[in-house]
Design a protein around this nucleic acid. Structure first.
Length: 271
DNA sequence: CGAGCAACCTGCATGC
DNA sequence: TGCATGCAGGTTGCTC
């Protein structure tokens, strides 16, 4: 479900309810997620206070002074703030309960997400240490992308979805950014001019910023921490629009598969 | 080493 | 209505 804008929307939603709060108890109803829920989350987290909620790529990082709770929402995960006394629904696997009786409740039907504990510096964590630059930071810029692109024969869509190149660009926004920059998703990365890559970099930043402003994209079931959907799907130009007219030239949008992922583009506007 | 793809799960839409 | 099939917003870790 969630790409970077949805994760950032969730971060902003939960932060005010969580920062400065002390954890009193943790309930794990289902520990089998992408990886087993780290046992430290039950044994060490209670008694600690959440200092800050950060985000790195699509990981949410809840920092304490003894370690960091790493939450990934996978394909179908969501978090909400709710009174701990409210009976959990189906697929609500974990409760982080705070000193004020509220809890951070993790729901994830497909269980592709994860809740992990890192007691050492977070930047050394296995899942974090090899990640590329944040797309909305100055570290993601044209010279960086151009260098990484030069020798790569891989389709440009696969490249921008590769977390070592840039993090946070998922399947929806990859198609959208390529549409906005007029680049065919299958084009070999090395065959794209610097001029067009400049457009791509700003398209990625653009799309992600816009999507965050609109509270993310709700295709089926994304809801933010208050249970509300996002609105960016109303802005999607190509994703999920197979057969519909391109908003620029009216040519029907095509759907193809790249690296086992659905990909949408305009065969006229994107070369 | 990189590229390609299977795997992890449940829910839902579609078609017979 | 029931059942089989295919597809879904992510990412690791296998095999070649």
């Amino acid at each position: 479900m969630p790409e970077l804008p949805e994760v950032e929307t969730t971060r902003r939603g939960i932060a005010p309810h969580v920062e400065g709060r002390q954890v009193s108890r943790v309930i794990v109803r289902q520990e089998k997620l992408r990886w087993p829920v780290s046992p430290e989350i039950t044994t060490q987290l209670p008694g600690l206070s959440i200092k800050q909620v950060k985000r790195r790529a699509k990981y949410l990082l809840l920092e304490t002074d003894q370690g960091t709770l790493i939450i990934h929402l996978g394909m179908s995960g969501s978090l909400r703030i709710i009174a701990a006394s409210v009976k959990p629904e189906k697929h609500e696997h974990v409760d982080i309960i705070f000193d004020n009786g509220q809890c951070l409740r993790y729901k994830d039907p497909r269980r592709f997400g994860s809740l992990l504990w890192s007691s050492t510096a977070i930047e050394n964590h296995k899942l974090i240490q090899h990640l590329g630059p944040e797309p909305l930071s100055d570290l993601f810029h044209i010279d960086d992308l151009y260098t990484k692109t030069k020798q790569k024969k891989t389709p440009i869509k696969s490249l921008i979805m590769d977390g070592q190149i840039v993090v946070g660009v998922g399947n929806i926004y990859a198609s959208e950014a390529l549409f906005q920059s007029g680049i065919h998703p299958k084009r070999a990365a090395q065959n794209i001019s610097k001029k067009r890559l400049i457009k791509l970099v700003s398209a990625i930043k653009n799309i992600l910023n816009q999507a965050i402003q609109q509270g993310g994209t709700t295709l089926k079931d994304f809801v933010n921490s208050e249970g509300n959907p996002g609105y960016f799907q109303q802005t999607l130009n190509v994703y999920g629009q197979k057969g519909k007219p391109c908003p620029i030239c009216q040519t029907p949008i095509k759907q193809i598969t790249i690296a086992q992922r659905s990909t949408f583009y305009c065969p006229q506007c994107q070369r």
